[in-house]
Nucleic acid binder design. Structure first.
Length: 272
DNA sequence: AGATGATCCTGTATGC
DNA sequence: TGCATACAGGATCATC
């Protein structure tokens, strides 16, 4: 499930190839009509001027004032080699080979559409997205203000509004690092805990970016490599295995309709 | 308005 | 072995 580190890895891999090229044609393949692939044909004739990332979204601003917005969803992948199945979008590009960018997405949770640059009205998650966790805007003051809600901290991390780019894996990892119980009301966190969690979010995401993401099953970098962060996971997917700090078994519960792994020894419901 | 739950979708894992 | 069912989850929509 691509989160910030995986999308950033994809961005870094694709940028040197894509930026500067002209989109000769953009068409949907095995993709039904609908808003997930809206306006694709408008990309034709425009040059890709940059490859940016915002949260889990890949943003490719175009020379004609539009913007190609790609979200990988659960299973989306971008490649220069034509996939055998589940092909949703093909971009034909100018320049030396390879000249095709393929968007494959078996589970169809992903999106690939063209909007007017910066006009995210059809993408509320992007429009209301919180600060980039690895950027300067993710200040302690802003973070503390965002925590002023009864919403469980795990749900808040997943909502993209308080901070961008955190998904189920790195939410569990950050909470484990910070020793905070995932069901704690956000506003029950002390200032110290808020500071610790903010640092944990930054640390786990930075380390995962350095490892090119987490490969559990499907995710690959555009060159086909596996992300190397999986061995560093301390909570996610470790149900029943010993906590790396206190050796108590990691437990799994459902929170915010998501599987949530944590250590009942290190991550207490009450402030320490 | 903010928060919660259902929904989409298919590969993989589990159960009988 | 083979079939049926459960499960995984990001963002969005409907519904409080």
């Amino acid at each position: 499930m691509p989160e910030l580190p995986e999308v950033e890895t994809v961005r870094r891999a694709l940028a040197p190839w894509l930026v500067g090229r002209r989109v000769l044609r953009a068409r949907r393949a095995q993709a039904p009509p609908g808003p997930k692939y809206a306006g694709l044909e408008r990309a034709a004739g425009q040059r890709i001027v940059a490859a940016r990332r915002r949260g889990k979204f890949l943003l490719l601003p175009l020379s004609g004032g539009d913007e190609l917005v790609i979200h990988l969803g659960m299973s989306g992948a971008l490649a220069s080699r034509r996939p055998a199945d589940h092909l949703r979008v093909v971009l034909e590009l100018s320049g030396p080979p390879p000249r095709q960018l393929y968007f494959r997405d078996p589970r169809r949770f992903g999106r690939c559409l063209v909007v007017a640059a910066g006009d995210y009205r059809s993408l509320p998650a992007l429009e209301r997205m919180g600060p980039e966790p690895l950027g300067r805007d993710f200040t302690l003051a802003r973070w503390c203000a965002a925590l002023c809600t009864p919403t469980p901290i795990k749900a808040l991390l997943l909502a993209q509004r308080a901070v961008a780019g955190v998904g189920n894996i790195y939410a569990d990892e950050a909470l484990w690092l910070a020793r905070i119980h995932p069901a704690r009301p956000s506003r029950s966190l002390s200032r110290d805990e808020a500071r610790t969690l903010r640092r944990a979010i930054r640390r786990v995401l930075a380390r995962a970016v350095a490892a090119q993401g987490t490969t559990l099953q499907d995710y690959r970098t555009p060159s086909g490599a596996r992300g190397r962060f999986a061995p560093e996971l301390a909570a996610y997917g470790r149900e029943g295995e010993p906590c790396r700090r206190c050796a108590r078994p990691i437990v799994k519960v459902v929170l915010a309709a998501r599987g949530t792994c944590f250590c009942p020894g290190c991550q207490r419901r009450t402030a320490a």
